[in-house]
Design a protein around this nucleic acid. Structure first.
Lengths: 192, 192
DNA sequence: GACATACTACCTACTAAAAGGTAGAATAAC
DNA sequence: GTTATTCTACCTTTTAGTAGGTAGTATGTC
């Protein structure tokens, strides 16, 4: 096989693994589950990702990269900070529609069973999220689009926490409207 | 052993199981882990809880019962609704201090791997939480202690979601102050 | 262009450990 | 003596991971 196919298989494994992890948790999946879905043998996954830790690292670092690509695009397309927050919410709304949680929430819940590197990757992901949100909060307040008491840092934390919890509640009740209700209330408190 | 001891062993198993689940997730623990901590043999756990599903059901139903006891006490001790919310936050702050998440958040993340009965138990737990919060929000607004736009129902959802996310963020950063910052901002928005 | 070499992308077949769970004996309580 | 509790000793399945092989592709050398 050529390099192109190589990349496809590796990405296919990651796509599949991510979907399974988001649905069943990091301790709720096995190499067999992935192999079956991808249509390869167990050992072939070990060829690309020697052990589960490697796979975990690949998942979270890829997740961070795609997040950065997304928010860069949002920054490029959008000037209004209210609109930016709405697009951030859209990102967290994706998993809700499939009745699962985003990778970061899933890994966060399974934190104690993750290797140090995966934990560090998760921290980096949240740090990137909070940094972006904080900047949007800051600018939005300065430009009079957003209203909140306290610092932009705390508001960013509160915002992210609400989305995470909204995902959990939506899924537990198998009701996507819960996510929308919570995020609506979150936004209306910020723009009123 | 007598009935008293029986209860002790059973409760000891549940206590231990709950602590392990809250730290490692529902798919991150085994009967061996519990047995080792409790100081009994693997098979003895099966005597009380024939399978993992039974154990899960016992955990979540006990969790609901102890929640109801707690909020009943809060209602009996406290008339001010701001104070009631603070005591609710205290309940969710407990696991944060031990760098884990509460049972409901943990189970919520592992939802897809739980039996229908455990899922139903989790739903009941959240429903009880939201019902109590909604009543406090409603009363607090009526009595002029709490201020928020929108319905008490949505505000209750938002409040609970924020606490859940705050637990996840606190743990991921291994920083209990994050929980306090988020809940402070949550409260100050409600009482301003 | 032919041939040797090395690499890529998988495979089959295996291992050791751990998982959840059961049967039935031993012990303890009353 | 009966019943409740806990044990030893097992079973089956699944787990992550390894060893070694193979077909095809690329590359280098003459």
């Amino acid at each position: 096989m050529n390099k192109n196919n190589n990349k496809n298989t590796s990405e296919l494994i990651l796509d599949t693994a991510q979907a399974i992890v988001q649905q069943f948790g990091f301790n709720g999946f096995s190499y067999s589950h992935i192999a079956e879905k991808v249509g390869i043998r167990n050992a072939s996954i070990h060829y690309y990702f020697p052990n589960k830790e490697d796979l975990g690292e690949a998942l979270i670092s890829r997740y961070l990269r795609s997040f950065l690509v997304y928010v860069d695009q949002v920054d490029a397309d959008t000037s209004n900070n209210v609109e930016k927050l709405r697009k951030f919410i859209l990102l967290y709304n994706g998993p809700v529609q499939e009745y699962c949680t985003c990778l970061s929430v899933t890994l966060s819940a399974d934190l104690a069973t993750l290797s140090g590197k995966v934990q560090a990757g998760l921290s980096k992901f949240f740090t990137a999220n909070l940094a972006w949100l904080e900047r949007v909060m800051e600018e939005g307040k300065r430009e009079g689009q957003l209203k909140f008491e306290g610092t932009a840092e705390v508001e960013a934390h509160h915002f992210l926490a609400s989305l995470q919890g909204a995902q959990l509640l939506s899924r537990s009740f198998h009701d996507t409207s819960k996510f929308e209700q919570i995020t609506s209330s979150l936004m209306s408190a910020l723009v009123k």
